[in-house]
Nucleic acid binder design. Structure first.
Lengths: 224, 224
DNA sequence: AGAGAAAATCTTGCATACATGAATATTGAC
DNA sequence: GTCAATATTCATGTATGCAAGATTTTCTCT
């Protein structure tokens, strides 16, 4: 058997969680995963520990690993943190972005426009992630950008549920347009404020959706 | 042998790193640590993986684990991230802090005052950490506060070097006073700006020190 | 039949064993 | 004497084995 299994396993599990194939609350059986990936429990355990540190998985001692299921309070708080980080990124990006950064932002924005015009929510999703990532990168601060990406990934499983909110894509794209305008106009504070509002309103929309879902059924609870 | 070694080991190693007993760049030998703690390599490895995810340790495949040694660029970027987070905390704390939060901030500030007046740098250190932590907590956002604490811990090993900067404590305390004034006056934007400046100037002072140290010797490089 | 307790089962946590790649020492050539 | 190639040693990465806690099943008693 050759080396370096753990990173591959971590990425595979991370993708499964972010893509929603492993649902929040679900238990991750070490033996089952080991068999599925054709390795022993050791690298699986190490991958799970990494995922727990990055916040996608929760390890309860002697109980096992579970895909993290954020409660309402933690969700609100996470969106607020995300909003603050994104606002900072916007302000710094205005100060520092170069031509290639502008281009990356424009490109991602156009991809969003196409997906939004087509009403294609599945396509809008990754385009939206790319749009925000382009802003992070434009700060020129890799540590900050890495942090932002990490948080973005952590919230991805929950954003997925938002697909059901009507007219979400149109609203999101309109907000993106305002952000791009402020960024390219060189108005840092305005870009920051619009990014903050964009993320916070996403969070609010999400909480509304969650409340509605919770009212009609306990679907999330049964997910495990 | 009874259960739950890994968390204990992680905390012990974390303390060693943050307290400077394990220096940035130093290699962490699994076998040696296992002997030192009287356990096998397995829980040691798991603790190291956790520390690598939290940013205190870097694991290079097949090479081993090393206490993270941030380069100049990463240090600057980390301090900038910290400054942004602290600024956000300050603004939100103004909006949301209750009487107990005010008290905690005041208490920590007074502890800083005593240490500063005595010129006791060793005592100022933890008091300073408590002061900032009190502001994080006053946001009422546990996710945000947790993130801030994590970043604070990650930078702690480097702040330690600052002890040598002359009149650092007096300057720091004076800045704290300005922050407290803004916080208690209810001026969120001012508190945010002063916190941002406080952290950034710390970073700059630190970089200056680092350059000086580097000029006189390659001490940091030999630390491994 | 239902509730509680005991036993069996299953899973995790840790220890140990082994294989492979990296680091180091040694030997040989120039 | 220095450099390079090779052999040896050593540490990491993974697999497997074993002990203890958690879970589930079953059995007993009311």
């Amino acid at each position: 058997m050759r080396g370096e299994q753990t990173p591959r396993l971590r990425e595979a599990l991370e993708d499964d969680i972010v893509a929603g194939r492993l649902k929040p609350g679900q238990r991750l059986d070490e033996v089952g995963l080991a068999e599925r990936f054709g390795v022993s429990r050791t690298p699986i355990r190490e991958a799970l520990i990494q995922l727990s540190s990055s916040g996608l998985v929760e390890i309860r001692p002697r109980r096992g690993a579970f895909v993290v299921l954020l409660g309402p309070r933690e969700l609100i708080e996470s969106f607020e943190l995300m909003a603050e980080i994104e606002a900072s990124c916007g302000r710094l990006a205005v100060q520092r972005m170069g031509p290639s950064d502008r281009e990356a932002i424009s490109d991602a924005h156009e991809t969003c426009r196409i997906a939004a015009a087509a009403g294609d929510e599945e396509a809008y999703y990754p385009a939206n992630a790319r749009f925000h990532a382009a802003i992070y990168a434009a700060t020129g601060n890799r540590v900050l950008a890495g942090e932002a990406l990490r948080l973005q990934r952590g919230l991805q499983p929950y954003r997925r549920l938002q697909l059901k909110v009507p007219r979400r894509v149109e609203a999101s794209f309109a907000e993106h347009q305002g952000i791009v305008d402020a960024l390219f106009a060189g108005d840092g504070p305005l870009a920051a404020e619009r990014l903050r509002a964009h993320v916070l309103v996403q969070g609010e929309r999400f909480m509304t959706l969650l409340a509605a879902l919770h009212a009609e059924s306990e679907a999330l609870e049964d997910a495990g």
